[in-house]
């Protein structure tokens, strides 16, 4: 069994890319920062709003700030030795490979299904060797028993794969946090096996 010091030394050399800094991305990034991942490349173009605070890792006084810079600040307060490269960009097929080519693992953390489809298709097409951890299905509350994970080749899926957000089933901190942390846990498993 590896000692915690050895594990931390290994993780210090790793880089993780995070596509989206919302409910999944901000919580996953914080979990990865707390275990001491060397570098996080975080991409998003959005600003923090009041409505985000029900599940995303931001604070009241950060409303109006660009998410990637607010998240970089929050990670700095947790562990200043974690390098964060915030990219205030909208990801598209034209810039995904360039943005994440130096990463050991990529985390898909978008909210819209269209964006999930675009990212998964681009990564599987242009970087099929790169492990990709996606969050799929975490709306509403309860139903702990249906949240699961599985993989298809290099694509790792975390979530219940059935609950979609709607006015009746909003995204809420507990289930979004569970899936974000499952994604971080999957990333750790991949990195420590590399």
């Amino acid at each position: 069994m590896e000692s915690f010091t050895k594990i931390k030394r290994k993780l210090r050399r790793k880089t993780v890319g995070i596509a989206g800094a919302g409910g999944l991305g901000s919580n996953c990034a914080v979990a990865l920062a707390r275990v001491g991942i060397g570098k996080l490349i975080i991409c998003d173009f959005d600003k923090v709003t009041r409505a985000n605070l029900n599940r995303q890792y931001y604070f009241n006084e950060q409303i109006g700030q660009q998410k990637v810079f607010a998240l970089a600040d929050n990670i700095f307060f947790i562990d200043p030795y974690v390098k964060v490269l915030p990219k205030n960009i909208k990801l598209s097929p034209a810039n995904i490979k360039e943005s994440f080519k130096s990463c050991d693992v990529i985390v898909e953390a978008f909210d819209k299904a269209e964006m999930k489809e675009m990212l998964i298709e681009t990564v599987l097409d242009e970087m099929p060797e790169k492990p990709l951890v996606v969050g799929l299905g975490m709306a509403g509350w309860g139903k702990n028993e249906i949240i699961k994970s599985r993989n298809i080749d290099n694509l790792f899926i975390c979530g219940d794969e059935e609950t979609e957000i709607s006015p009746e089933l909003p995204p809420l901190a507990p289930r979004v946090g569970i899936v974000a942390n499952m994604q971080a846990n999957q990333v750790l498993e991949l990195l420590l096996n590399q």
Binding site: G20, A109, F110, D111, G135, A139, E164
Partner: peptide, 9 residues
């Protein structure tokens, strides 16, 4: 494999 994508995150 056919993966259904649903919104939420």
């Amino acid at each position: 494999d056919i993966i259904h994508l649903i919104s939420g995150g």
